[in-house]
Computed example of a mutant assay.
Amino acid sequence: MSLSFKRKFSLLLATSLASIALFGTTAAQAVETLTIAASPVPHAEILEFIKPQLAKQGVDLKIKVFTDYIQPAVQVNEKHLDGNFFLHQPYLNEFKKSHKNDLEVPIAKVHVEPFAAYSRKYKKVADLPDGATVAIPNDPSNSGRALLLLSRQGLLKLKDPTNISATKKDIIENPKNLKFRELEAATLPRVLDQVDLALINTNYAIEAKLNPVKDSLFIEDANSPYANLLVARDDNKNSDAFKKLAVALNSPEVKKFIEDKYKGAVVPAF
């Protein structure tokens, strides 16, 4: 092999290796991973639906499922996760009050899960007895939501019937002498047989095989201010991956998926 040929071969080999390295780097950069916390139903199911679409756009969507309302927010706030999809604005507002270094920023409204009241013992609101025991969520935003819904049914009267942060101290009239049990939201379906009425978040109701449209005594309407949000951290809210995720969650395909799968138990908010 001549010296000239060796030089040409070495140059060609170096160029090829450089191209391979460049291509490999570009390919690695083309895929961005997003790890999103979500409640099992319907949030994780919706994310699973759009996961293949995002993969084609270079986003590797990893879904971390939580069964409570605390850790999904805490994990994002502590930068262990990129974002979450489970909460509504009133919940986020309450979370920010108790977490001074909160980093969470709402990116897009996705759906409303109409809050509803259920009973194993009674078929009509009018049948609730004097002194009935009512179970409601114990987190501030959802307990206020429960009281507002009870107020709209005439079961109690609040100082301000529009105050989403209402507490039991804001009740000024309680004609049926309702007794309240404040419990973690995830446990409410399990105590349904032990109380006269339980106000249950739709994601937990669906997991318990309760249909909010068919099985509830009463339910929020579609004008609820409690739209569930896609939330990012302040430091990654403008990333291309999050923009793609937000667009996917607000797509016609997701709207149809929600309408077909949940049949009114979950309502698109876009």
Rank of each mutant, 00 (worst) to 15 (best):
Met1Trp: 09
Ser2Leu: 02
Phe5Leu: 15
Lys8Asp: 06
Phe9Ile: 13
Leu13Tyr: 08
Ser16Gln: 14
Ala18Ile: 11
Ala21Lys: 11
Leu22Lys: 14
Leu22Arg: 14
Leu22His: 15
Phe23Gln: 15
Thr26Asp: 12
Ala27Cys: 11
Gln29Cys: 10
Ala30Asn: 12
Leu34His: 07
Pro40Asn: 06
Val41Pro: 01
His43Ser: 09
Ala44Pro: 02
Glu45Asn: 10
Glu48Tyr: 09
Phe49Cys: 06
Ile50Asp: 01
Gln53Cys: 11
Gln53Met: 12
Gln53Phe: 12
Leu54Asn: 01
Leu54Ala: 03
Ala55Phe: 10
Lys56Gly: 08
Asp60Arg: 03
Asp60Met: 04
Lys64Trp: 07
Pro72Thr: 05
Val74Cys: 09
Val74Met: 07
Gln75His: 14
Gln75Leu: 13
Val76Arg: 00
Asn77Tyr: 11
Lys79Leu: 15
Leu81Ile: 06
Asn84Ile: 04
Phe85Thr: 04
Phe85Ser: 05
Phe85Ile: 06
His88Pro: 09
His88Ile: 09
Gln89Pro: 10
Pro90Trp: 03
Tyr91Pro: 08
Ser98Tyr: 10
His99Ser: 12
Asn101Thr: 14
Asn101Ala: 13
Leu103Cys: 11
Glu104Pro: 05
Glu104Met: 10
Val105Tyr: 06
Val105Thr: 08
Pro106Asn: 07
Val110Ser: 06
Val112Trp: 02
Val112Arg: 03
Glu113Thr: 13
Ala117Trp: 00
Tyr118Phe: 07
Ser119Trp: 00
Val125Thr: 15
Ala126Phe: 13
Pro129Asn: 00
Asp130Gln: 14
Gly131Arg: 02
Thr133Leu: 07
Ile136Thr: 10
Asp139Met: 05
Pro140His: 06
Pro140Tyr: 03
Ser143Gly: 12
Ala146Phe: 00
Ala146Glu: 03
Leu149His: 05
Leu149Thr: 04
Gln153Lys: 08
Gly154His: 11
Lys159His: 07
Asp160Glu: 15
Thr162Lys: 15
Ile164Phe: 03
Asp170Ala: 06
Asp170Met: 05
Glu173Met: 07
Glu173Leu: 09
Pro175Val: 08
Lys176Trp: 08
Lys176Ile: 07
Asn177Phe: 00
Leu178Asn: 01
Phe180Ile: 02
Glu182Asp: 10
Leu183Ile: 04
Ala185Met: 10
Ala186Gln: 11
Thr187Leu: 04
Leu188Thr: 09
Pro189Gln: 01
Pro189Arg: 02
Asp193Ile: 01
Asp196Tyr: 00
Ala198Ile: 02
Leu199Pro: 06
Asn201Ile: 12
Asn201Thr: 12
Asn203Thr: 12
Lys209Gly: 10
Leu210Arg: 03
Lys214Val: 01
Lys214Ile: 05
Leu217Asn: 11
Phe218Ile: 04
Asp221Ile: 07
Ser224Val: 10
Leu229His: 06
Leu230Trp: 02
Val231Asp: 00
Ala232Cys: 13
Asp234Val: 12
Asp234Met: 12
Asp235Ser: 15
Asn236Pro: 11
Ser239Lys: 02
Asp240Ile: 08
Ala241Tyr: 01
Lys243Trp: 01
Leu245Met: 12
Ala248Ser: 12
Ser251Cys: 08
Pro252Gly: 08
Val254Cys: 04
Lys255Asn: 15
Lys255Asp: 15
Lys256Asn: 15
Phe257Met: 11
Glu259Gln: 14
Glu259Val: 09
Lys261Pro: 05
Lys261Phe: 03
Lys263Tyr: 05
Lys263Arg: 10
Ala265Glu: 02
Ala265Phe: 01
Pro268Tyr: 00
